[in-house]
Design a protein around this nucleic acid. Structure first.
Lengths: 350, 350
DNA sequence: TTGTAAGCGTTATCAA
DNA sequence: TTGATAACGCTTACAA
């Protein structure tokens, strides 16, 4: 009993049971109650005698007790952990999403695990399979999975999709039409009549969505539009499209995202092509870096950090209350988009 | 028994026990063995009768069985999860670290949880406290904790520190001296005689390390050097230093990192100050974006993605073999650094 | 309000 | 080689 005596004159944190972390049994023994009472005192404050609770809390504190989340997760099935799956961690677009999601999760006392698919549906499935058993819910940002796979997943754990709409699932995605309408309007005003769209991965829902919106907005103004792609959503993917872009004879190229737009811009500069005089360029997402280039990239921005945070909030709703699909489960959240005009778009030379 | 019959003609995955995921008990029942045998068959291949193992594996596959990592973690104490703590997820420097760490962890079948301290030692401690019980080991990248706290942590779980050296702990950090020597040599060759260092957070080990190396390299060449700071390691932090930088009368400013360097560059541009003619600027890390500015940022780069990966590898060594400190525990890994000369450094005007 | 005891799904220790 | 059984640390009916 010596090392478990309640009096610790020198203030040292008492170590119960040789070096191992203390459990509710240690607290129970010292506080002269049953372990179940300790459990209740700690996880359901106010439901037991306040005097007892007081004593238990004091002992817990003294032992420097931390609840073991794994042991708790086993009987409850709840891990206090959320998953976030992204296509490519190094894509600056993702950073904002991760940040928003991480902070929202941390604020709610949840832990976030991040898994990366590296643009491969197969790797994505593997990654999900690994994390799924130990999380309470999942945010799929920029997923490369098919609708059927996603729906199947949603039968195992609550799922929120970000940057995509899936029927019957809570989906958060940018109001593409609005931003594209602004962008195309801006281009038309400048005098452009022909657009090239540098598309992203063909598995990207958002890329096809952007293409559809561009086609619609362009044809409404009798502008012509061609698709160049699919391409990698990276600097390299954008740079690789320069030849076909120039060959197409358009006066403006709209890239799937800013990363591609920057790649295209740099490739153009390498060929001595002046932007925006000889070629206007625009992108999507307003990533870190798109205002660093000369000229800056005109872009359609969406509040992706906010998107990440809202995805987590929606997920927490589903996770914390009860597993039944609530009415809000079908909710589709539209993220407002807005056009940021920078130097990469201007009047065409002709 | 009907729904647990072994013959499933239509290939449907058999659901044992109404919707819940199958356990080793379900497998045991169907394969007519004891649950413990199932556990052995699945987690220690080759240690049991191959015929039995075969049968068990087949049943497991048919049931679409997945081991429950939480249940496994309880008796073993091992979670197959690693933690990574960073100061600020949105800092591009971090991206590379996270990418390297995530991929290395995923390749080893481990899950990575990322926690963010948001540049606050207190938040960092809280975040660590939350994840610690459910991880096997921790990588501290850009930590804002004190040495004592770190060592205390290392008594609870294996720890690797990245971008810092802590006595007695496995540490990975850039070979600052080498890169700085190159940088200062480059500046001296250009004709600079006075340097300002825009320091980062005063809790940043690496910032003081860079300062020390700069002082040493500068004085060796009879160049003068002053410190401006501490400042936030962000665009804003760099921009905020412009006034004091100009006032100091130096011909070159070396920022704690590229983010600050870019901030300073843009602030200079805003004041009509021509870089590098009126002021040369250099940074550290070669982040995404430092070659996007005009002029590009001269920088000392270190392979941070590789650093993240190596940190995870070192951690896996400690985690997977046995918890004793091996001889390699004291290892300090030096990441090679190299100078990237871009347009932001040039001959001083005078 | 508190105690008793049965789980949660694994692994691990002994026997058989 | 396999089976029985006790952990792992916590939650949660059910009793008292």
């Amino acid at each position: 009993m010596a090392d478990q005596c309640s009096q610790v004159p020198d203030g040292t944190i008492r170590r119960a049971r040789g070096g191992k972390s203390p459990t509710i049994y240690d607290i129970a023994r010292i506080a002269h109650v049953n372990p179940s009472t300790v459990s209740r005192a700690l996880s359901q404050p106010g439901r037991i005698n306040s005097k007892t609770e007081e004593r238990i809390r004091a002992t817990a504190k003294e032992l420097n007790y931390r609840v073991n989340p794994i042991a708790r997760a086993l009987p409850t099935g709840r891990t206090n952990t959320l998953g976030l799956v992204v296509a490519d961690i190094t894509n600056p677009v993702i950073f904002d999403i991760v940040r928003g999601a991480e902070r929202a999760a941390a604020d709610a006392g949840y832990t976030l695990v991040v898994a990366e698919s590296q643009e491969s549906g197969e790797r994505e499935a593997t990654a999900i399979e690994r994390v799924l058993p130990s999380i309470d819910g999942l945010v799929l940002a920029t997923t490369r999975l098919g609708d059927a796979q996603i729906i199947e997943l949603s039968e195992r754990k609550p799922i929120i999709v970000l940057n995509r709409a899936v029927d019957g699932l809570a989906s958060i995605f940018p109001d593409v039409e609005h931003g594209v309408e602004q962008l195309v309007g801006h281009l038309a005003t400048l005098g452009h009549r022909s657009i090239a769209y540098l598309s992203g991965p063909d598995t990207s829902w958002i890329s096809s969505r952007r293409w559809a919106a561009l086609v619609s907005a362009a044809s409404r103004r009798n502008m012509s539009i061609v698709e160049i792609g699919p391409g990698l959503p990276t600097l390299e993917g954008g740079a690789a499209a320069i030849t076909r872009t120039l060959a197409s004879g358009v006066t403006v190229a709209v890239a799937f995202n800013d990363l591609m737009a920057i790649g295209l811009l740099r490739a153009a500069a390498g060929l001595g092509i002046v932007v925006p005089t000889a070629l206007s360029i625009a992108g999507f997402d307003d990533i870190f870096g798109s205002d660093l280039t000369t000229p800056g990239i005109t872009t359609v921005r969406a509040p992706l950090e906010d998107g990440g945070a809202r995805a987590v909030h929606l997920l927490l709703d589903r996770v914390s209350v009860h597993p039944k699909r609530s009415a809000a489960a079908q909710a589709a959240v539209l993220l407002p988009t807005s056009l940021l005009v920078r130097g990469s778009t201007g009047r065409p030379a002709s």
